[in-house]
Computed example of a mutant assay.
Amino acid sequence: MSIQSTTRDMLISEGLRQMLAHGYEGIGIGPVLSAMNVPKGSFYYFFKSKDDFVLSILDAYEARYRTMREALLADPNLTSLQKLDRYFEVIEEELLDHHPSGGCLYGVLAQTVTARDAAIRTRLARSYETWHAAIVEILEGARKAGEIDATSDTAELATDIIDAYEGTLIRMKATDDPAAFRRFRTRTIPRLLSVAMVQSTATP
């Protein structure tokens, strides 16, 4: 890896850390550069503006979690619902490691990005769509394998899971309660899935 690539990756990593902690409006280029001991000229060599920097952070964030999901989906030893649980288990481990500064970049940006940042809002919406599609893919695998009812609306179920996930992270931030995510993973998701599983278990 070149020095330039390393510097760019370091800036993105620090930008992500600060954005999760302070939101879009709270992140400044100066603190990022100071934390990495990088001159301002180097920043503008890699990024045209703050918004371009944020978009690059979004790209890197999405790519990281896409790689993680793809690895889980490729594991032949896990059922689809086990993959779903393992996916959120990995996220839980990361959140606990970085508590209280951790979180979901999508949720943080959705709450803090200003109305004038159309490019970021558009990119953020696309990120949510990609994430939603990935959860649907896992649930479709569960539906086809008979883990949930064949008539289950996997798109709606994925939406419910994501909405509950984002609400959980807000609660974690508001109450400083890291156990909230454990409840989401071990109680909320199973309850959402149980609605889709009731018909399956009731069918002779």
Rank of each mutant, 00 (worst) to 15 (best):
R185Y: 03
S42I: 09
T151P: 05
F47D: 05
L192V: 07
R121D: 04
P31L: 09
T114D: 03
D97G: 00
V54R: 03
A134I: 01
E14H: 13
L11K: 06
A155I: 02
L157R: 08
M36I: 08
Y106K: 12
A150Y: 10
Q18L: 15
Y165A: 09
L139Y: 03
L33D: 04
I27T: 15
R17Y: 03
S200L: 09
A180E: 08
M19P: 08
N77L: 03
S127A: 15
G141S: 11
Y106V: 12
L55G: 07
S2M: 00
D85N: 13
T67E: 15
S194K: 14
L169E: 05
S5F: 00
A35Y: 06
Q111L: 07
E14W: 09
S194I: 07
M10P: 03
R116F: 03
V195H: 14
S5R: 01
E156C: 09
R171T: 13
R191S: 15
V54F: 06
A133C: 06
E147N: 04
T201Q: 05
R86Y: 02
N77A: 13
R66N: 13
R66L: 11
L105S: 05
I91M: 13
S194F: 07
Q18S: 11
R121Q: 15
P39D: 12
F43R: 04
V38P: 02
V195R: 12
T114E: 11
D117L: 00
A145C: 08
G141A: 09
V113Y: 04
R171N: 07
E70R: 12
I12Q: 04
E129R: 12
T159W: 10
I138D: 04
T186L: 06
L58K: 03
I3R: 03
F43A: 03
S49Q: 00
L20W: 06
R187M: 10
I162R: 08
Y24A: 12
A71E: 14
Y45W: 11
A155Y: 10
G26F: 01
S56C: 05
R185L: 13
F43Q: 04
R123H: 13
R17T: 10
D176E: 10
A142G: 07
A174W: 04
G107S: 09
A119P: 00
A118D: 01
L78Y: 07
Q4I: 12
Q82V: 10
E137P: 02
I3P: 01
R17M: 10
G41M: 05
D97H: 00
T154L: 01
L124W: 05
T168V: 06
A164E: 07
L72K: 06
F53T: 01
D176F: 11
R126T: 08
M10E: 14
Y24L: 13
T130C: 05
I12K: 06
H22C: 15
R126Q: 14
D75V: 02
R191T: 10
P204G: 11
R187T: 12
S127T: 08
Y45L: 14
L73M: 13
F46A: 11
R126G: 04
G107P: 02
Y24V: 08
T203D: 14
M197P: 08
A150M: 14
F184I: 02
V198L: 15
L78S: 12
P100R: 11
A134C: 02
V54Y: 08
D75S: 05
R116C: 01
Y44F: 12
